[in-house]
């Protein structure tokens, strides 16, 4: 959007040389994969009164209909305004994903029975573990980044070792080491704090590198101007450098938060009743694994969307000076 030139090149999808081969390929794939035999294909064929036709005829019909629908859809969406295009495409793709889940012939009655517990116990625990870990990881990352940029050998050594160790070991190992290892030293630790500690340390190590790179991306001149004005090191960092570095730090940090949200499911190995743990155990009792897995997945997705929206807001705030 920001990078569009002021030239009206013919739009990609309005070029027949792309549009038509594209549709041909889609048609070919549908035909080759025997779309007529799928549940969706059968339903479509039934709609056209061809449920009893030969397999090839059904495939042909389904491939044709789907290709035509896509062709019309693209033609219509192309005529919308950019903002609406994004929403429409998003909604359509989301619908397809939901349709995919729906095709599993799920027992909604079972989901309805279990979702309350999944939310009140599982979701709450996941949110709690993730939120606390995010806060601690951010603090660790900030300390780590400043240590790595300092000229204090001890701080530098600790920070280097920290990022090396906690980025290098598998997160699963870290969780076990903290939960099972610390008691060996005489510190008995509960499952939830152990999980939070492991997540914070691991993600703090990744984010240390993000924060360091963000700070380093600010030109020397900014430090010098700030120092020449007499600002103290603390003020130079918090008032001049970090606000500018935030623009660079936020997008990858948003990534980390979303990844952490889902990695919080790893703490289920030490018996924390978070979302994934409950989804698995609740599904087991009545052999309804798929129902629970899909429900949990959708909840993770919704949480990720919320994080994406928050990230977008913060990004816009820090981009203020550049876009105006």
């Amino acid at each position: 959007m920001h990078y569009a030139d002021n030239v009206d090149y013919p739009r990609l999808l309005s070029r027949p040389s792309i549009y038509i081969p594209g549709l041909a390929i889609l048609f070919g794939i549908l035909l080759y994969t025997q779309a007529g035999a799928t549940s969706l294909g059968q339903a479509l064929a039934g709609l056209f009164g061809m449920a009893e036709g030969s397999p090839f005829a059904t495939n042909l019909l389904v491939a044709l209909v789907v290709t035509a629908v896509v062709a019309i859809n693209v033609a219509v969406v192309m005529r919308l305004r950019l903002k609406h295009q994004v929403y429409v495409v998003w909604a359509e793709l989301a619908l397809l994903v939901l349709l995919f889940f729906y095709s599993f012939d799920l027992s909604f009655e079972f989901i309805r029975r279990k979702i309350g517990f999944l939310l009140t116990q599982g979701l709450v625990t996941t949110l709690y573990v993730s939120a606390v870990s995010i806060v601690i990881a951010s603090v660790l990352a900030m300390i780590g980044a400043i240590a790595k940029l300092s000229s204090n050998g001890i701080a530098l050594g600790i920070a280097n070792f920290y990022t090396s160790l906690f980025r290098g070991l598998p997160l699963l190992m870290q969780i076990y080491m903290i939960y099972l290892g610390l008691p060996q030293l005489g510190y008995v630790i509960d499952a939830v704090p152990a999980g939070i500690l492991a997540l914070s340390l691991c993600y703090g190590a990744y984010m240390t590198e993000i924060f360091r790179a963000g700070i380093e991306s600010i030109p020397r001149g900014q430090w010098e101007a700030s120092r020449a004005l007499g600002l103290k090191p603390k003020d130079t960092l918090t008032r001049i450098i970090l606000p500018q570095a935030m623009r660079i730090i936020i997008p990858p940090t948003g990534n980390q938060f979303i990844a952490m949200l889902k990695d919080s499911s790893l703490v289920s190995v030490v018996g924390v009743w978070e979302l994934m743990y409950l989804a698995r155990t609740q599904g087991q009792t009545e052999f309804r694994h798929v129902e629970m897995m899909i429900t949990a997945s959708l909840i993770y997705w919704i949480l990720s969307i919320v994080l994406e929206l928050i990230q977008g807001r913060i990004e816009r705030r820090y981009n203020r000076a550049q876009t105006r």
């Binding site: 010098e224 101007a225 020449a228 500018q244 820090y318 000076a321």
Partner: peptide
């Protein structure tokens, strides 16, 4: 002492 730089070094934010 006040200082003015070749590249201005204004704070863009």
């Amino acid at each position: 002492v006040g200082m003015v730089f070749q590249q201005f070094n204004l704070f863009p934010h």
